[in-house]
Design a binder for these strands. Structure first.
Length: 297
DNA sequence: AACCTCACCTGGGCGC
DNA sequence: TGCGCCCAGGTGAGGT
């Protein structure tokens, strides 16, 4: 699930459950995910108070007492599941639907690799079937110098992300704009879905060379990125495949996709065939790009 | 440097 | 029903 809006949503839910609480106990169920967990991770989390959360791109930072922060990335399939005290039958869903229960009521614990239990008995599980996620621990001081964060571009929803700054980082690039926007060093937090949606809103083809975007096109692209991310966060993010639930407990932005995963469907801005063949799909850098060939140039 | 491809994993959906 | 294949929200590493 995890691009910026999903990570933001998960983080808000986590914060509601954990901020101000003490981690009474932690458990790791395997040695690591994408990389090995830090030495003695469970022991080092235990007894700490959770001071708060921050997001940087698709990473969550959980500030702990004692001057350390946990860095968490959800990878492709990571999720956080909160269970109330008393081993309740179905996990209760936190505010904003930041948590999913374990797939259709199944146990889902097979892929729960890290579990935190608060002093009040809430349990928060990090589940990640594909194990592309990661967890690290580092000093809170100088968080942004962490190897995984150091090269990140601007936060797209902050003031500092402007047509001028985007233009500067795209200038001279010979790669397709699609690939450039997926580069976390250009702008932090975009992934395959929101790049597609933002390029559609801006009327820019994913094939266009990044170096030709600075100027008027960047002036359209920046507000397109900001609006699509803002609306997605308001909707609680997007939920796909196994994440989909119909009861509104989790993100609903997927219902508002205009091009992503809509191959062949009419583009919302076009009159339909024969003027426009509908949403097309191409593969760029090994990943699907969805776009409208008529309105995106 | 800049750019591209691969690799890391599991699970769901589809066609046969 | 079962099997094989393709696809999936990410991204660092290693090669050209």
């Amino acid at each position: 699930m995890p691009e910026l809006p999903e990570v933001e949503t998960v983080m808000r839910g986590l914060s509601a459950v954990l901020t101000g609480q003490t981690i009474a106990r932690a458990e790791t169920r395997r040695a690591g995910l994408r990389w090995p967990f830090p030495e003695m991770l469970a022991e080092r989390l235990s007894g700490r108070r959770v001071e708060g959360f921050r997001r940087r791109g698709k990473y969550m930072l959980m500030r702990l007492s004692g001057g350390e922060s946990a860095l968490i990335h959800l990878g492709m399939s990571g999720r956080m599941v909160a269970r109330p005290p008393g081993e309740g039958p179905v996990p209760r869903i936190a505010p904003q639907g930041a948590f999913s229960d374990a797939r259709g009521g199944g146990d889902g614990l097979a892929h729960e690799h890290l579990m935190l239990e608060t002093g009040h008995g809430w349990r928060v599980g990090f589940q990640d079937p594909r194990r592309f996620g990661c967890v690290d621990l580092m000093p809170t001081e100088g968080e942004d110098r962490h190897k995984l964060l150091a090269g990140m571009g601007p936060e797209p929803l902050e003031e500092g992300f402007t047509p001028a700054t985007l233009s500067r980082s795209l200038a001279g690039k010979n790669t397709p704009i699609k690939a450039a926007l997926l580069d976390q060093g250009v702008v932090a937090g975009l992934g395959n879905i929101y790049v597609a949606e933002a390029l559609f809103r801006a009327g820019i083809s994913p094939r266009r060379l990044a170096g030709t975007v600075p100027g008027a096109r960047a002036a359209r692209l920046v507000p397109a990125i900001k609006s699509v991310l803002t609306e997605a966060i308001e909707a609680g993010g997007s939920s796909l495949r196994d994440y989909v639930r119909s009861d509104g407990e989790i993100g609903r932005f997927q219902e508002r996709f205009e091009v992503y995963d809509r191959l062949g469907q009419p583009c919302p801005r076009c009159p339909g065939p024969p003027a426009c063949p509908g949403v097309q799909r191409i593969v760029q850098a090994g990943r699907s790009s969805f776009f409208c060939p008529r309105t995106q140039r």
